[in-house]
């Protein structure tokens, strides 16, 4: 009988001490679960933000290029007014010459000079139309999405209106 009690008491080192071997995997499991859960949540949040931005950019572009020909500056401005979004955005038109050697890529230093203009004041830019802030946006590495579409813009050449190809840039950022 004495021997049996001793046998039953084997390993008894207290209420928690007895369960210690089983507590270790439980804690490990909880740590792993919450770590992965937190990671999944962060990925979900970041990715959702990116997709929301993508959708907004496409929505803005769809509004701006609803008509394949932009006849003048006023029409462009009116179309810009129809954009309904809470996202930060800017859109502008850059010339698309027929000669591919004369085409220019989007650069923070030169983009302002290449925006199509009606007069010196009327540049085809809307949304955030502050040139300096767009320049800064293009310079820094903050997350932004740039979408580009070809479009036709009517412009005056030697006082005669001509419909010429242009690049419509839509930039959104959070």
């Amino acid at each position: 009988m004495k021997m049996s009690i001793t046998k039953n008491k084997k390993g008894l080192i207290g209420a928690i001490g007895d369960d210690l071997p089983s507590l270790i995997p439980i804690f490990l499991g909880l740590v792993v679960f919450f770590a992965v859960f937190l990671n999944t949540y962060n990925v979900y949040k970041d990715t959702s933000n990116l997709y929301d931005l993508q959708q907004e950019a496409i929505k803005i572009a769809m509004t701006l290029k609803a008509e394949p020909l932009i006849p003048d500056y006023n029409f462009f401005n009116e179309t810009c007014g129809k954009v309904n979004t809470t996202t930060n955005w800017t859109a502008f038109l850059i010339d698309l010459p027929l000669d591919t050697n004369k085409q220019i890529s989007l650069s923070p230093d030169t983009f302002a000079d290449n925006i199509i203009k009606d007069t010196e004041e009327n540049l085809f830019i809307c949304g955030d139309d502050n040139i300096e802030s767009v320049q800064k946006l293009l310079q820094n590495n903050s997350s932004k999405l740039i979408y580009l579409y070809p479009i036709t813009v009517q412009r005056k050449i030697e006082n005669v209106e001509h419909a010429l190809p242009a690049k419509l840039y839509v930039i959104v950022w959070s």
Partner: peptide, 21 residues
């Protein structure tokens, strides 16, 4: 038996974590 239970728990958590990942 408690240790085996906890190992089962760990297995389930691992499967869940893999699924979430």
């Amino acid at each position: 038996a408690a240790l085996v239970d906890s190992l089962f728990f760990l297995t389930i958590i691992t499967a869940l974590a893999v699924f979430m990942f």
